[in-house]
Design a protein around this nucleic acid. Structure first.
Length: 273
DNA sequence: AAACGCGCCTGCGGGC
DNA sequence: TGCCCGCAGGCGCGTT
């Protein structure tokens, strides 16, 4: 379940793509979350050189020298990997990019919640997938002042708020739970009833948790791998996620599990107020 | 108009 | 043993 730290790690381990060229591609199954835009791939991506590999929100983006960008969302179970052409094709490999260097980039996604699309690079921010996105949590834009002004206007739970990609991007269920534990704030607390110091703690906790998770190469619970096929290690540092009944790291009280906006939610009753 | 709930998918693990 | 069911969850969209 790739969130910001996982996409950031994939980006970092995929810089070998820069200056390589996509010579051809094959689509084995075009039925992803949205239909693979084969025509656009042919017109703007095929034959083009990769100038830059970067990330915005949970999107991995390849800027091409054609003036267009390919962007990929991994959904829940998507994976990108580099393979030699003779390496056997694994199940659920839906799109394969052939590179001038001889390598292949394969997109695998058993659950097909992911998708990819193409947009003119200069208009990327206006694309429907991008034009409503909130701020990057690791940027200066995500400040206590920003979260306070947003939270004041909402009665939703703080966990639901920080998972809303129209407000702040990249925070999924794992890191939302972990950040609120770090900030000592209960997930179901109403956003507009948090104190200034709690807001400040939440912002710091989100930045710290995401930063630490990136340092550890992301969280591998089941099948996440970076572009080199390596797992992440942040799962060793999880304090609450998927730990219902486990003694809290700090107070030894059993971690609670509830459902909030349809999501499994984990917290410590004693440490989080 | 904010906010909730649903549907999309497959693999896995628990229970019987 | 093997089957069935619930759960995992990002995101857009429909509904209230």
């Amino acid at each position: 379940m790739p969130e910001l730290p996982e996409i950031e790690t994939i980006k970092a381990t995929m810089q070998f793509l820069v200056a390589d060229r996509i010579t051809q591609f094959s689509v084995l199954n075009q039925n992803l979350r949205w239909t693979v835009p084969i025509r656009k791939l042919n017109q703007h991506i095929c034959g083009a050189n990769i100038d830059r590999v970067w990330r915005r929100s949970k999107y991995l983006i390849w800027d091409m020298d054609s003036g267009y960008s390919l962007f990929i969302h991994l959904g829940m179970s998507g994976r990108l990997g580099r393979f030699r052409p003779d390496y056997p094709l694994e199940a659920h490999s839906h799109v394969v990019f052939h590179l001038e260097s001889g390598w292949q980039i394969r997109y695998r996604d058993p659950r097909r919640f992911g998708f990819l699309d193409v947009a003119y690079t200069q208009n990327l921010e206006q694309h429907p997938r991008f034009n409503k996105l909130g701020v990057e949590p690791l940027s200066v834009d995500f400040s206590p002042h920003f979260l306070k002004s947003t939270a004041q206007r909402s009665r939703r739970s703080i966990k639901t708020l920080i998972m809303d990609s129209n407000i702040v991007v990249g925070i999924g269920n794992i890191y939302a739970n972990e950040a609120l534990f770090r900030a000592k704030v209960r997930p179901e607390r109403a956003s507009n009833r948090l104190t200034d110091s709690e807001i400040t703690e939440i912002v710091s906790a989100i930045k710290d948790i995401l930063g630490e998770a990136i340092q550890r190469g992301g969280t591998t619970l089941r099948d996440y791998r970076n572009a080199q096929g390596e797992p992440g290690f942040f799962q060793q540092d999880l304090a609450v996620y998927a730990k219902s009944g486990v003694p809290c790291k700090i107070c030894k009280q059993a971690i609670k599990q509830i459902r909030l906006s349809g999501r499994s939610t984990f917290y410590c009753e004693t440490c989080q107020l």
